[in-house]
């Protein structure tokens, strides 16, 4: 990994972590585990759609691992890791069939994949199939928050894309 790329991805990770930590300060709106805005996903979206999957994966993994440490909630790491990677896989696959004006679609589906992965991991780990009743609620919240972060990411990618790609030195 070149120095330019390393520095650029480190800056993106720092931005994602900052957003993540700021979001932690927002009080929970509904007492349902797993419902949150997921603002840090904006950074993943922008990275994926402007720089490609490998940079996005690096930024995502660094953010999830460091974020769990910053939040002091390492136990939740497994859930966010499963959800995060599943969402990333969905986004990466959808990137091939979407235009730059449809980034929000990838975000909505990624948010839903995140919720499915998260709850699936929770059910397996905790042995609590009761959690399945949360899935429809989580999907609704995922669609709404995914739309919001997706549109934010789409505009951000539009503005930042050119400059971000320049850092490749090409």
């Amino acid at each position: 990994m070149g120095v330019r790329r390393l520095a650029r991805d480190a800056v993106l990770t720092a931005v994602a972590l900052t957003v993540f930590v700021v979001e932690l300060q927002i009080p929970e709106l509904v007492p349902i585990p797993g419902v949150k805005l997921g603002l840090a996903n904006i950074v993943t979206l922008v990275t994926l759609f402007t720089l490609g999957p490998w940079d996005a994966l690096a930024v995502l993994m660094a953010r999830i691992l460091l974020g769990a440490l910053f939040a002091g909630n390492v136990m939740a790491l497994l859930y966010s890791l499963t959800g995060g990677l599943l969402a990333f896989a969905v986004m990466t696959l959808m990137r091939k069939i979407l235009t730059n004006r449809q980034i929000w679609v990838a975000s909505v589906f990624a948010a839903m994949a995140h919720n499915v992965g998260q709850i699936g991991a929770a059910i397996l780990v905790a042995g609590t199939p009761e959690l399945l009743v949360y899935l429809p609620v989580l999907l609704v919240s995922g669609i709404v928050t995914g739309l919001f972060t997706g549109l934010a990411g789409q505009y951000a990618a539009g503005w930042l894309g050119k400059n971000l790609r320049k850092t490749d030195g090409k």
Binding site: A122, E130, V133
Partner: peptide, 15 residues
Amino acid sequence: SAAPIVCLPHRLVIR
């Protein structure tokens, strides 16, 4: 409610 109370960190469910 059919929705249980869940404490995921402690793996506790009340239903």
